[in-house]
Design a protein around this nucleic acid. Sequence first.
DNA 1: AACCCTGGTCGGCATTGTCGAACACTGTTG
DNA 2: CAACAGTGTTCGACAATGCCGACCAGGGTT
Lengths: 251, 251
Amino acid sequence: MPGQVQSIARAAAILRLLAGGSGRLGLLEIARALDLPKGTAHGIVRTLHDVGFVEQDKTSGKYQLGAALLHLGTSYLDVNELRSRSINWADPLAARSGEAVRIGTLLDSKVLVVHHVFRPDDTLQTLDVGALLPPHATALGKVLLAYNARGGLGDLVPYTRRTLASPRVLTRALAAIREAGWGSDIEEMTVGVAGIAAPIRGYGGLVVGAIGISGPVERVCDAHGQPRITLVTHVREAARAVSRDLGGRGQ
Amino acid sequence: MPGQVQSIARAAAILRLLAGGSGRLGLLEIARALDLPKGTAHGIVRTLHDVGFVEQDKTSGKYQLGAALLHLGTSYLDVNELRSRSINWADPLAARSGEAVRIGTLLDSKVLVVHHVFRPDDTLQTLDVGALLPPHATALGKVLLAYNARGGLGDLVPYTRRTLASPRVLTRALAAIREAGWGSDIEEMTVGVAGIAAPIRGYGGLVVGAIGISGPVERVCDAHGQPRITLVTHVREAARAVSRDLGGRGQ
DNA sequence: AACCCTGGTCGGCATTGTCGAACACTGTTG
DNA sequence: CAACAGTGTTCGACAATGCCGACCAGGGTT
């Protein structure tokens, strides 16, 4: 595979930097972070500005992401097959389980949320479509990692006392998920919150995403602290349904 | 202003093409659309693929937008000041008016929706954050055009019988909006739907966005087919409130 | 099996973008 | 108040870089 176009790869790195960093960044911060000369960085940023991918705060001169990216991002949702096939099954799952449903896929060792239906009750919730979740601390993420060909595990930062922060423990958990066909996380990212997820298979049986629910531990888990079997069944059935729609073998 | 980085500008054009076009495109379609040699187009697309901005359907070989863009798009929302300042005022406006609220800004002669709160009732609605609306056929758009320094009017395609499709009629309508300080659209984009919008001013009094409501004509308009004065007042007050938050003079 | 179409590759030429230094500006500091 | 340390921006020379067109490889269809 021949090399990449240098300037485009650099431009992408700048955009990722702006997305990851805390909001605005100065030109020099960008140049230093990517180890580029000022002039070079400026040229790239200028064109990114011209095409609307980057905006500049006139007073401080700092740069941030631009409006054009928003439309590109939502356009991606329109063509994403995993999402479009999932939508019909996510709503029933939310209704039956009474919990929030999320569908995610792996984006360089993180979980990208491509669809999200709120918990049926009327509590205030924020839409996290487009958010990146830690793979090792969420049911969605662990399921995706379990079936991931490339073995990257991500950062393994501990969020709570129950987070699986050691590679050995995590790989064993992933093996268990492969064995069972589904996974869960119990207060591993947020205290008081648990989740259940199952893999979605696309054409050829390859795992292309995961669907899962999450909610308060006391509702998601039974008296023994284990995920309720009825909820697990609902999630796995939804995953199979989506897989079937995608043309995969559905488990 | 020195020139742009050629390859980056071309890459952006390809992304826009993929976003605008109907889903997947083949390499040759891309090359032809932008009048590039095959090889050149392939090099750019390959790097876009490597950085995750573009995905390829393995069976058909065609290209589509990639997952990385989704996260960039939502990251833009996080740093967008117009959106963050508006959120607190959009909910009350929706509650008081009983209609859906949208906040938009101008993105090369189209209206980019940066925030959207659903109509308070429980009817099925689709989130159109990130969508591009026609400027000449929506209240949001006409308000934005009215205060736009660069005079581009967009495409002026007629959607309904009442769409303002002629430049002369439209420019006169824009002048009226500047005079009144608010604007409306009555069945100009969709039959049975009307909207009211007012400009949001940022630092220095410059119009940086617009906020508006939209809903069924019979609720938004009175017996004479004119926008209800109470609703207009609510919208204008919300616009002023957001402007004040942004540090502008608020009208 | 010849033909069209597709996407992908390769290498020579020169266009293109990179690079470092100099510029203009702001706010801070000695 | 001047020198300074920051910033973003511009410029021009050099050559590395990415562009281009011809060539290769696979899949359908005729």
